[in-house]
Write a protein that binds this DNA or RNA. Structure first.
Length: 454
RNA sequence: GUGGUUGUAGCUCAGUUGGCUAGAGCGUCGGAUUGUGGUUCCGAAUGUCGUCGGUUCGAGACCGAUCUUCCACCCCA
């Protein structure tokens, strides 16, 4: 072998046994989505950069994978631009397409583009890979799958409630212990307003998002470093120190935010959502978390995040409401809300906690040992009948040594082996061997089908 | 993007202050058993020591670059 081939940083190959587990996650999530009446769509991997840029904040733009224009992309570039080395300016001229960064923005684009064919509210799910030019770490990949569900064209908070139930269902089915954190962007906006730093909402939310991780002292010093007035930081302290259950927190916020119109709106929304949540039993823990901010710029109302309680992997699901994403594409006044399940992180959590079922129906139920041409001819019609009876079955393709064939069957976790050599064929029968128990019996092909049908 | 870290057989990893022919376990393959896997026993194969360059009589080990891994920051699923 010359040079070993490799794949780009932050990407992965998936082996058959990994795919069995990944598909288990995808299938579970998909079945829950369908249970709630969502329909699937797909969009292209690449979008026009004009669609993607400016939707994820400054940081997001940097993390977009950009695709070079075809042909001689330098032919129309001024020497001046090259010498200047302004990479942002130059990038705009040599690249007009990029890999999608999430599924929500392409979805908004899709909705605007297909608005004539959609009857709102539109409920869609979408399971596809996304790409981010981030530096990889554990649980952080450059190519990963998101499983998005969104309802667009409805302002009702019942949609938020549905999404919370979907999250609970998914993680119950996957057996993952989770906590769902809920907050509302309008409350964050209200807080910024009340403390007199209305314009600095992004800096403020980014800082208090770290409260859990770095503690109140460090949050304060980060805010100070960002140029937030010490007076404002002082006013923020009681908010960061909110305690009690959800109702108590909401009541305190009502008092704190009473002079902020947007803050009041946020509290009203939260109250409605939590009222709904209290009407149903949930297995996951659900909490109001004032410190939850979420980085994506387009959220305007409810925001969610789900964390696994038993690992350090970080958030495995996130989402929120966006009031004007379609507006950017020329179709204002359409509100949407959605959440996104991070399949790869869910995989990592389940793997780490050994939550995958022990046995998967990932392989054939039965395999025919191949003794040679004559025997193969004898088995072929039986094999066909088995498949017509919906029994996953296969024949080993070469007349290799029995030992090798048995070993191969064993490694593929195939439960039954059919042995039909000269003696069996003469009797018009086959040997069925149970690989778990080692038992074997001489039976007719008819009996074989009825036994395996059970 | 900033700072650090890692790379030796298919996999997990040893390899002393630079010194002869680079090792182990697991797996793979062959045999014991030419019609019976998973257990047991016996045997075998496997490496441009990530890559390129440098220092040295001599480099898996030291230096530089590059790629990759993981970690922190940033940000996020």
């Amino acid at each position: 072998m010359a040079q070993k081939p490799s794949i780009p940083k932050g990407t992965r190959d998936f082996t058959p046994s990994e795919m069995i587990r990944r598909n288990y996650i995808f299938d579970t999530i998909k079945s829950v989505f369908q249970l709630y009446g969502f329909q699937s769509i797909e969009t292209p991997s690449i979008e026009n950069l004009s669609t993607l840029m400016g939707k994820y904040g400054e940081e997001g733009d940097k993390l977009l994978f950009k695709i070079l224009n075809s042909g001689n992309f330098l032919s129309k570039i001024d020497d001046k631009d090259l010498i200047e080395k302004n990479h942002i300016k130059l990038t705009n001229k040599i690249s007009e397409k990029g890999l999608r960064y999430d599924l929500t923005v392409p979805f908004a684009r899709y909705v605007v583009q297909h608005s004539n064919d959609i009857s709102f509210p539109f409920k869609r799910y979408q399971i596809q890979p996304v790409w981010r030019a981030d530096r990889p770490q554990k649980g952080r990949y450059r190519e990963f799958y998101q499983c998005d569900v969104d309802i667009i064209g409805s302002k009702s908070l019942f949609n938020e409630f549905e999404l919370v139930q979907i999250a609970d269902d998914v993680f119950n089915k996957l057996n993952i212990n989770t906590v769902l954190k809920i907050n509302n962007r309008k409350i964050l906006a209200g807080i910024a307003e009340i403390i007199g730093e209305k314009e600095r909402i992004t800096d403020i939310t980014v800082a208090i998002d770290k409260l859990d991780k770095i503690g109140i002292e460090n949050v304060n010093s980060e805010l100070l470093g960002k140029g937030i007035s010490s007076d404002a930081i002082k006013k923020l302290q009681p908010i960061l120190n909110l305690e009690g259950n959800t109702t108590e927190k909401i009541n305190q916020l009502k008092e704190i935010l009473k002079d902020s119109e947007i803050g009041n709106k946020g509290i009203e929304e939260l109250s409605v959502l939590f009222h709904n949540i209290e009407s149903v039993d949930f297995k996951m823990e659900i909490q109001l978390d004032i410190a939850l901010a979420r980085g994506l710029n387009y959220y305007t109302g409810s925001i969610f995040e789900v964390k696994s309680k038993d690992t350090e992997i970080g958030s495995i699901t996130g989402g929120g409401r966006y009031d004007n994403l379609t507006g950017i594409f020329g179709m204002p006044g359409i509100s949407g809300v959605g959440i996104s399940f991070g399949a790869d992180r869910i995989y990592d959590v389940m793997n780490q906690l050994e939550l995958f079922p022990k046995e998967f129906p990932g392989s054939s139920k039965v395999i025919f040992i191949n003794f040679g041409e004559k025997e193969q001819d004898f088995c072929t019609p039986i094999l066909r009948k088995l498949r017509q009876a919906n029994i996953a079955s296969e024949m080993y393709p070469d007349a290799d040594k029995i030992k090798k064939q048995m070993k191969w069957a064993n490694r593929k976790d195939i439960n039954y082996v059919v042995i039909a050599g000269e003696q069996e064929i003469e009797a018009g029968k086959v040997i069925l061997k149970n690989m778990k128990t080692g038992d074997q019996q001489l039976i007719t092909p008819q009996q074989l089908i009825s036994i395996l049908s059970r």
